[in-house]
Measured scan of single mutants.
Amino acid sequence: MQRVNMIMAESPGLITICLLGYLLSAECTVFLDHENANKILNRPKRYNSGKLEEFVQGNLERECMEEKCSFEEAREVFENTERTTEFWKQYVDGDQCESNPCLNGGSCKDDINSYECWCPFGFEGKNCELDVTCNIKNGRCEQFCKNSADNKVVCSCTEGYRLAENQKSCEPAVPFPCGRVSVSQTSKLTRAETVFPDVDYVNSTEAETILDNITQSTQSFNDFTRVVGGEDAKPGQFPWQVVLNGKVDAFCGGSIVNEKWIVTAAHCVETGVKITVVAGEHNIEETEHTEQKRNVIRIIPHHNYNAAINKYNHDIALLELDEPLVLNSYVTPICIADKEYTNIFLKFGSGYVSGWGRVFHKGRSALVLQYLRVPLVDRATCLRSTKFTIYNNMFCAGFHEGGRDSCQGDSGGPHVTEVEGTSFLTGIISWGEECAMKGKYGIYTKVSRYVNWIKEKTKLT
């Protein structure tokens, strides 16, 4: 034993070699072989497995989906700052455009905790909710729209109204504003409101030439003092309507412009014939205590009207009353817009006519005020429907199939267009061939041609 100890002390290297040989010859039971080890760690190889990531292109799944990435790591994937920024906006807080917040056709661009709407022409605001041009839906104005110097929408209202708090709607500024039905039992019968379409306001006024200088022999019209197929109006439903009495009662109609003036057809009036105007009328054979009678003290036909040349060209006249009318729910003026808007309103496509005229061709006159909704007829169809001249200051309205029309005794009465609950004068009943005849239409004086003249002559002093 002493000898062994001496050998170990003198030859430590020998001992180490012996131990190493023993270990190498022993069977290893701690580690699995290569094949079995792979069965336990069965993990798919990654895209760049075996390579240094710093030297390969980034992978979106590896960089940002398996674990949260930084902007720089995302930049490695896209290799483009702009594309990385677009991805980053949604990656950080989701897609803010998912709810489609942009209105009126706006395009949404996502941002971090926010979004941006790219608005089409005519709109602005956070969600493109603000109209900035009158060309689109009248700028959301209830009545009139004008573009300011910086191309912003400025709404306005006709006389007797003021802008509401929203700067879009119009509200009454006087007790009985024009064009409004205020009798409670008839307010439910107000005709369907007309909503502004998209309009090209630059070209809204037709490029028409008034044929002022045409000389033409007097034409022989049949029954051209021209509501057939209409309905009984309720008291106060058309408070701007008046009836004219002269040699015979209810020979023509008219509309209240203001307390002192009536507008009617020029062919209705004769110099030297006494005319009485009755406002607030409903049943011409009954006294309903809503009527107001006034005498006409002055007749002003349009300066281009000449019955000797043509009885229905420039067929418009103004009547001055001896005493002002007292405005109330049964006696209310009709609204008159400017030339541009009167023309736009007419193009809405349908209007209402009213009167006490004959209820059928050569038949009896109506006792109760009649009204009828009539569609506008395109000019080409209008011209083809008659052998008589249709001037540019006239328009056609009615039904091709016949059966409904204005008729004798309705002449001078109103053709009105309702705009968001307020009625505007767009025409004056003038003439036609018979009444409600198939293929024939009622012919009306186009008020847009005469609004400046009306307003100039009827100013209240």
Rank of each mutant, 00 (worst) to 15 (best):
R3H: 06
V4G: 11
V4P: 07
V4K: 14
N5C: 12
M6C: 11
A9R: 15
P12W: 06
G13Q: 10
G13N: 11
L14T: 04
I15G: 04
T16V: 09
S25W: 14
V30I: 13
V30N: 13
L32V: 12
H34S: 07
N38H: 11
R43V: 15
P44M: 09
K45W: 07
K51D: 08
L52K: 12
V56R: 06
M65R: 08
C69K: 04
S70F: 07
F71G: 14
E72F: 06
E72N: 15
V77P: 15
N80M: 04
W88I: 07
K89Y: 05
G94P: 07
Q96W: 12
S99R: 14
C102I: 00
N104K: 04
K109Q: 08
I112K: 15
S114P: 04
Y115E: 03
E116G: 13
K126F: 11
C128F: 01
E129L: 03
T133R: 12
I136W: 04
R140L: 14
E142V: 05
E142D: 10
Q143G: 00
K146V: 08
V153T: 15
V153D: 04
C155Q: 00
C155K: 00
A164G: 10
A164P: 01
N166R: 02
C170A: 00
S182P: 06
S187A: 10
S187L: 11
S187Q: 09
T194Y: 12
V195C: 06
F196M: 08
N203C: 03
N203T: 11
E208H: 12
T209N: 10
T209Q: 11
I210D: 13
L211S: 12
L211K: 08
S217V: 13
N222R: 11
N222T: 07
D223Q: 12
F224E: 06
R226S: 07
R226C: 05
G230Q: 07
D232V: 07
D232E: 09
K234M: 07
Q241N: 13
N245Y: 03
C252S: 01
N258A: 04
V263W: 00
A265I: 01
G272V: 02
I275R: 00
N283D: 10
I284P: 07
E286W: 08
T287H: 06
T287L: 13
H289C: 07
T290L: 05
K293L: 14
R294M: 01
V296R: 00
V296I: 06
I299Q: 09
I300S: 03
I300C: 03
H303N: 09
Y305Q: 02
N313A: 13
N313I: 11
H314T: 02
A317W: 00
E320D: 01
V326M: 13
L327E: 03
T332K: 06
C335W: 00
I336S: 00
A337G: 06
A337R: 01
K339N: 10
Y341L: 08
T342G: 06
S354W: 03
S354P: 05
G357Q: 11
V359M: 15
F360Q: 10
R364T: 12
R364P: 09
S365A: 15
Q370N: 07
V374S: 04
L376C: 02
T381G: 04
C382S: 02
K387T: 14
I390V: 13
Y391H: 12
Y391V: 06
F395Q: 01
C396E: 00
H400D: 14
G402L: 14
S406E: 15
S411L: 11
G412A: 14
V419L: 07
G427C: 01
K438P: 13
G439K: 10
K440Y: 07
I443T: 08
V451T: 05
I454P: 00
E456Q: 12
